[in-house]
């Protein structure tokens, strides 16, 4: 029964903190087995969404279903586990003792030795938690999350505050574990992590989904170029209908055109209008990410995947 349900189904999720709307009518469906990056800048509402997804926060409006039921049931049955940004560890225990203690909280835990091995911390098993680096503690949290052999693993900004080496070791552990069937949701503001790890990227901004597609689709955003020129009183409508044009924005005397066909736009601007100071720049994934998540050059809020 539960196996035909989506792994995660969020519908119209809303959460406000005083005057701030952290999550604004967010809907998302994740099928079993998907590896999804939940990508957005700090403050986009990722962590609040993850908290609601795990039952750590209650939405003001909207519903959360995890494998067809409330998140608390999924947690109790060990179907979902998470590695959170916060979430402390007991400093007086060793790495192995922490895992051994947590194993008793589950009905059918994986063996402690196996979990330590898969998280890449078998060699520091006897180290007190208080003496572990941030990266090692994060891999310990990952080990704890592996105990129930969850169907859904949620990673919330798992490498924040880690040095380069720590990040590399952490991702090595995650990759080594990646196996068929486990659904993974990764909340991050690192584009490269989303790119390297996820099959699908969900871009969030101001508590809403602004783009949702396969990694390749999101990367296609980078295919365009931006043509910029000084042109007081530019006719936006005329520019918008040129072939390949995705968006037009006017900033003071400047006009910015996002397009697949920069030659046509440039030719039009230079021959049919009084445009001057023309610049053509190519865009990369970083630009696409910034454009979609910070609000510049977005003519239409959800241009991708539609």
């Amino acid at each position: 029964m539960t196996d035909i349900s989506p792994a995660v189904e969020l519908a119209g999720l809303t959460k406000t903190f005083g005057p701030v709307t952290a999550v604004d009518g967010l809907s998302l469906r994740v099928e079993p087995g998907e590896v999804v990056a939940f990508l957005g800048p700090n403050g986009a509402g990722k962590t609040t969404t993850v908290d609601m997804l795990l039952g750590l926060a209650r939405p003001d409006a909207g519903t959360v279903r995890v494998f067809g039921g409330p998140p608390s049931d999924a947690v109790r049955l060990g179907r979902v586990a998470a590695v959170m940004q916060t979430g402390g560890l007991l400093k007086d225990l060793t790495v192995a003792e922490t895992v051994r203690l947590a194993a008793h909280f589950h009905a059918q835990p994986r063996p402690v030795a196996e979990v330590l091995e898969r998280a890449g911390i078998a060699d520091i098993a006897d180290r007190p938690v208080g003496k572990c680096s941030g990266g090692e503690q994060q891999r310990l949290r990952f080990a704890l999350a592996l105990l129930p052999d969850p169907d859904l693993m949620v990673l919330d900004e798992p490498t924040t505050g880690m040095d380069v080496e720590g990040r590399r070791d952490f991702w090595q552990a995650i990759r080594a574990d990646a196996r068929n069937g486990r659904t993974i949701i990764l909340a991050t503001h690192y584009l490269d992590e989303a790119d390297a790890y996820a099959d699908r990227i969900v871009l969030v901004r101001q508590g809403r989904v602004v783009a949702d597609g396969t990694t390749a689709e999101i990367k296609n955003l980078a295919a365009g170029r931006i043509v910029r020129a000084t042109l007081p009183g530019a006719d936006q409508a005329a520019l918008a209908v040129l072939p390949g044009v995705q968006a037009v924005e006017v900033r003071g005397d400047a006009v910015l055109v996002r397009t697949d066909d920069s030659d046509t736009v440039a030719r039009h601007l230079l021959t049919r209008t009084a445009a001057r100071d023309l610049e053509i720049t190519s865009r990369n994934l970083e630009d696409a990410f910034l454009a979609l998540t910070t609000g510049t050059l977005t003519a239409d809020p959800a241009p991708i995947g539609a």
Binding site: L54, G55, L56, V75, R76, L77, G78, A81, A82, M84, T86, G87, G88, L89, L90, K91, A102, F105, H106, A107, R141, L144, A145, P148
Partner: peptide, 16 residues
């Protein structure tokens, strides 16, 4: 102590 360290938050992600 365990609340200050955030351990109780960690526990809420377990079936305990």
């Amino acid at each position: 102590t365990e609340r200050a360290l955030g351990w109780s938050r960690q526990l809420r992600l377990t079936p305990l």
